[in-house]
Nucleic acid binder design. Structure first.
Length: 572
RNA sequence: GCUGGCGUGGCGCAAUGGUAGCGCAAUGGUUUUGUAAACCAUGGGUUGAAGGUUCGAUUCCUUUCGCCAGCUCCA
């Protein structure tokens, strides 16, 4: 059975149940979605959790009755008369918006009918396993200025077993939540009453993780012909007027006035990189120029959109801008695509979704340039043989883009990498290079991030690995546990040896039992514990315990170091 | 920003118009430990904040900040 048909039918049953309990409620729409379905209602009093239970009970009754879904065709005017009688104002609007002359309705049982294209199940009895999940507000037609409706979310599966699995998966996702694990593992916290919302405080362990990621990225960028730059966090408003951000991005920018001058806290790194490009005359022989910055930006996000590390007001992008000749464009895009996938794999992600986003309503630059840029991106994807979807009208205001969303262990997607073409900024800043014919020409500019924002990426990492980071990323790789005080000299000798080769370690010399120390090491997800007592000190070995409980027993220290090093080198 | 829910010591929870409790953590001590929680003692909260109702508010009301589920928006 088609899952989306099943869910769509289930949403009709939901609507039928709601109408039975509250006949005055007006119906809006009720489609199937990726993980279930929803139905939007216009009802004065909000639905409560108890209401949901009551609705579920009525739904079960409707399912037990095994009512048929009966399709009927009407012409538009007939349908409007019908829904006027039922006082379903939203349905009337929907009918008026339809292009077709004929519309279809579905009847369920003796009283419920709904405007609907179908298809549906034959009867309600085919619904075997469903659950209502939550209520939330949603604008009619998704437009902010429209009235807000109440949306009931639910899900439905072919069998109770699949539903249970889905619900279990939701619980599993909760356990991985970076908002919970992050502070628990002492990686970061986000809100301080005196600091404001959406601002991240990295604690030592989180800062170490970020440093490891940053170091890796810097090394890889240098290897690939990028040059690292650093630009200021505040810049005069004049720069943002030239770039167009002042006009097109103002509501998201933090700015302040000092000594009569307005400054902007940078929301993007591009204008800064452009100034570096413009600092001298560039030759065609210099191109491509690839400028990379771990650029910290601040954006004024609406309070309601903030979400853990995924949506914050200050974040650091692994941002680069590439200035190139038109004939280099495709090649550069392909190189970036390779770079993105390679980087994702190194961090342990091997599934993704790719989207190409085209011109939005609010844009700068000529339509001709937009078309050229879009083609270049699309061709690069085709040549690389990468499957992608087109996201109409979702580009940035300055150019089309490729978004690469990685999928984590639970198959959830995370927007990270993006590659954006820009024919607009080079024009606004009058960028130029001297071509082989001695004439001044305009370079093409690419914006790109690999991980996106380090904040968001760290959130993805934590949830992907459930906080159990691979050895090479773990802030603490090895915990040394002395069994008693007398072995401390040997422990210190080991410490020195490991620190000399940059192994990150901690020593737990507290006055606590071994069991307790191991328990805490497990909870803080440290990959290796080395238990050190008299036996080990005598034989110059360490007793190795991997996270999860696997014991290797006594291992010669040098052998352990070699094994550890190998794994770190391989990014395991 | 919008709709709804929530906000109790560092963390996880309890109490609900009548003196705010527990566990973990912290601190002091005893114990020197062999692979997921030793024992004893001690300190810590004007219940997110500001107003109001009341003899009395953590509990009721208003405002505000923040969080959560979504909407809208996005790296």
């Amino acid at each position: 059975m088609d899952l989306s048909t099943l869910r769509h039918s289930c949403s009709h049953v939901l609507a039928a149940a709601v109408k039975e309990l509250w006949p005055e409620v007006k119906l809006a729409i009720g489609p199937a979605i990726e993980d279930g379905f929803y139905y939007d209602f216009d009802k004065k009093e909000p639905f409560t959790d108890e209401d949901l239970l009551a609705i579920e009970n009525v739904m079960r009754k409707i399912i037990a009755k095994n009512d048929s879904f009966v399709r009927e065709e009407l012409d538009k005017n007939q349908a409007i008369v019908l829904f006027k009688k039922l006082k379903e104002d939203y349905k009337i609007q929907l009918i008026q918006e339809l292009a077709e002359e004929q519309v279809s309705i579905y009847k369920t049982g003796s009283t419920f009918l709904d405007l609907c294209r179908g298809p549906h199940l034959q009867s309600t009895g085919q619904i075997k396993a469903f659950k209502l999940l939550s209520v939330a507000g949603a604008y009619w037609h998704g437009i902010e200025t429209n009235p807000m409706l109440q949306r009931i979310y639910g899900t439905c599966f072919d069998s109770q077993k699949e539903l249970d699995e889905y619900l279990k998966n939701l619980e599993e996702a909760k356990l991985r939540d970076h908002r919970k694990l992050g502070p628990q593992l002492e990686f970061f916290d986000i809100y301080h009453e005196q600091a404001g919302a959406g601002l991240v405080f990295y604690h030592p362990k989180g800062a170490l993780l970020r440093t490891i990621i940053e170091d890796y990225e810097k090394k890889e960028h240098l290897k690939r012909g990028y040059q690292i730059v650093i630009t200021p966090h505040i810049m005069d408003v004049a720069l943002w007027k030239t770039s167009g951000h002042y006009e097109y991005y103002k509501e998201n920018m933090y700015s302040f006035i000092t000594e009569g001058k307005e400054f902007v806290l940078k929301p993007m790194n591009c204008p800064g990189h452009i100034l570096i490009y413009k600092s001298k005359t560039r030759s065609y022989k210099d191109l491509p120029i690839r400028l990379f910055e771990l650029g910290t930006v601040y954006r004024r996000e609406k309070a309601g959109v903030l979400h853990g590390l995924l949506r914050v007001r200050g974040f650091t992008q692994d941002d680069a801008h590439i200035f190139c000749l038109p004939e280099q464009l495709r090649d550069e895009i392909k190189k970036i695509i390779d770079f993105v996938f390679e980087t994702m794999k190194v961090f342990g992600f091997d599934q993704w979704g790719v989207e190409l986003s085209t011109r939005p309503e609010k844009y700068i630059g000529s339509t001709e340039d937009w078309q050229k840029a879009t083609e270049a991106l699309e061709d690069a994807l085709k040549e690389k043989g990468i499957a992608y979807e087109i996201n109409q009208g979702d580009g940035a205001f300055y150019g089309p883009k490729i978004d690469i969303k990685l999928k984590d262990a639970l198959k959830r997607t995370w927007q990270c990498a993006t590659i954006q073409c820009d024919f607009a900024l080079p024009k606004r800043f009058d960028l130029a290079y001297i071509d082989s014919d001695g004439k001044e020409k305009q370079p093409i500019m690419l914006h790109r991030v690999l991980l996106g924002s380090l904040e968001r990426f760290i959130g993805a990492l934590i949830e992907h690995y459930k906080g159990e980071l691979p050895l090479w990323l773990s802030p603490c790789q090895v915990l040394l546990i002395p069994v008693k005080e007398t072995v401390m000299p040997y422990v210190q000798a080991i410490q020195e040896k490991l620190e000399n080769i940059n192994i990150r370690l901690e020593i737990d010399a507290r006055n606590e039992t071994l069991d307790k120390k191991i328990r805490e090491a497990e909870l803080s997800k440290i990959p290796y514990c080395l238990i050190i007592g008299d036996r080990e000190a005598k034989q110059e070995t360490v007793s190795v315990r991997k996270k999860g409980g696997a014991q290797q027993g006594a291992v010669a220290l040098d052998k352990f170091i070699e094994e550890l090093n190998n794994r770190i080198q391989e990014h395991k």
